[in-house]
Nucleic acid binder design. Sequence first.
DNA 1: ATATGTGCAAACTGTTTGCAGCCGC
DNA 2: GCGGCTGCAAACAGTTTGCACATAT
Lengths: 136, 136
Amino acid sequence: MKSIAEKLKEKNIRPSYQRMKIFEYLNNERNHPTADQIFRYLVKEMPTLSKATVYNTMDIFRKAGLVRVVNIEDNEARYDSEVSVHGHFKCELCGKIYDFPIDTDALSSNVLKGFKITEKDVYFRGICPECRNRNK
Amino acid sequence: MKSIAEKLKEKNIRPSYQRMKIFEYLNNERNHPTADQIFRYLVKEMPTLSKATVYNTMDIFRKAGLVRVVNIEDNEARYDSEVSVHGHFKCELCGKIYDFPIDTDALSSNVLKGFKITEKDVYFRGICPECRNRNK
DNA sequence: ATATGTGCAAACTGTTTGCAGCCGC
DNA sequence: GCGGCTGCAAACAGTTTGCACATAT
């Protein structure tokens, strides 16, 4: 089991304390947090933490392929430590975001022949089973 | 062929001059414009037009199902007068946004059984054929 | 006359930037 | 000591809001 520091070094990211804590948080809480959520959680144990550092770090992680940015909400970005191709479902009632697998081949129909596709985002919205049952 | 005024009335939207011009623009220029593009174009012939009116109008249109909001860019929203389910591809080089059909059944796999899906957004990014050829 | 729509400016929010100081190699 | 990282504050952009005035029925 690799240490966090090693994982960051592999990507040529200097493992500062802040970066390691942010990375640790992302991999423990897999709730697609916003930058603000990450900040508010970590500032409790690191009172001098700055939001700019969170943004900087997320950008570095994104460029290194350690996180995916989830823009399922129009106003603010969320971060996903699961970087493989998959879809996101947001429940309009409870706000929870679910991951789900997608058949990426079925999607990229032959209509996009000639296009080089480097990024695929699939966002669904609706009501999750829990909320549907609750309102019955 | 219905007049624009009639189309708006059908949706219980009072056909003010501004709203008709905005609706007309959306259906003529099918370039997935931003609010700012709509504003900058129309302010030329309507110097007193306000950006707030553009935003208000787009919100009314969206609620009435006349436009779809395209959030393929993280910073600003785009509007699509084509409201049927389809995907969007953005070329990272020329910035152009292409529509493409999606097999919506292939997408909603049985993994999302129990979920009520009301909205589907599919965003791809990459390089379009034109740009690929240009750089050869 | 009353409802609704418009336009202006100010507020708001998420994000980015510049820069001074700090830390680690 | 040097390069890189952090934290603060200010700047920034897109969007929303409050309100007075204009407009349409």
